[in-house]
């Protein structure tokens, strides 16, 4: 049966009988064109779409990408998922803390091959706007490095990292992988490309490895490890900057 636009408008306005409604809804199941007409005629669609047009705030999405699960501060599942975020975050000055995934990671182990794969997956969510919006005060940055260095048990060479000619230092934050700390130091390249220098300290040590250039998830990387720490510089698709900065950082952190 063919329905006129007037009949469809009446249906959308709730002005047809229950039987007519049922007939139209049954007809839509096998008629994509009728479905498309109803969608186009629906006066409520525009109104609702406009009501949600301002959501979410872009800064909110940047914040979501920044969140991660906190390391080793409590037993798995000790924190409720909801309602504690601000309380815990406030207790770590300058340290970005997200608790939402902690319990889930504990109950649903990641199948990723190793920490570098996880770092690459996380870095993939970064866009230039993510790091462009980060503008910590010098004091806040120093506090971030202090907290991160203590947790990773390593001098993070804040002075040297602040003075890299190719990159602008943005932030140091503590993440975690398999109950061990993972520090992410975020940079912005001159063209805005987000770059991260990540340091992982697994509980059971690592095999020592020399500097190696590679690619993970389409991002260029420079990685190496000592017996206690793993290092990964990652970001962008241009191998040049990663090789240059990676070589420099290898000199700083190879022992």
């Amino acid at each position: 049966m063919t329905y006129t636009d007037d009949v469809l408008r009446s249906y959308l306005a709730g002005e047809v009988t229950a039987q007519q409604s049922a007939d139209i809804e049954a007809a839509v199941i096998g008629d994509s064109a009728l479905e498309a007409r109803l969608l186009a005629l629906d006066p409520m669609a525009d109104r609702v779409r406009q009501a949600f047009a301002a959501l979410p705030d872009p800064s909110r999405l940047a914040g979501i990408m920044d969140r991660a699960h906190v390391v080793g501060q409590s037993a798995p599942g000790a924190f409720p998922v909801f309602g504690k975020l601000s309380l815990v975050a406030a207790s770590f000055v300058g340290l970005l803390v997200g608790l939402c995934l902690y319990g889930w990671f504990a109950t649903t182990p990641s199948k990723a091959a190793d920490w570098q794969e996880q770092v690459a997956a996380y870095q993939m969510l970064y866009v230039p706007a993510t790091v462009a919006a980060i503008t910590p005060s010098p004091d806040a940055l120093t506090e971030q490095f202090k907290v991160a260095a203590a947790l990773i048990d390593l001098d993070l060479e804040q002075g040297a990292l602040s003075a890299l000619p190719e990159l602008t230092l943005k932030r140091a934050q503590v993440l975690g992988f398999r109950d061990a700390p993972l520090v992410q130091i975020a940079f912005s390249a001159p063209d805005g490309t987000p770059i991260a220098f990540c340091i992982y300290r697994p509980n059971d040590g690592l095999a020592q490895a020399d500097l190696q250039m590679s690619e993970l998830s389409g991002l260029r990387t420079a990685g190496w490890s000592t017996q206690t720490h793993g290092f990964l510089l990652i970001g962008g698709t241009d191998p040049g900057p990663i090789q240059d900065v990676g070589t420099h950082l290898f000199g700083l952190f190879k022992t």
Binding site: G63, I64, M65, F82, C100, L101, W104, A121
Partner: peptide, 9 residues
């Protein structure tokens, strides 16, 4: 926020 992040992961 939480649900969005967990969906991504």
């Amino acid at each position: 926020d939480d649900l969005t992040q967990s969906t991504c992961l």
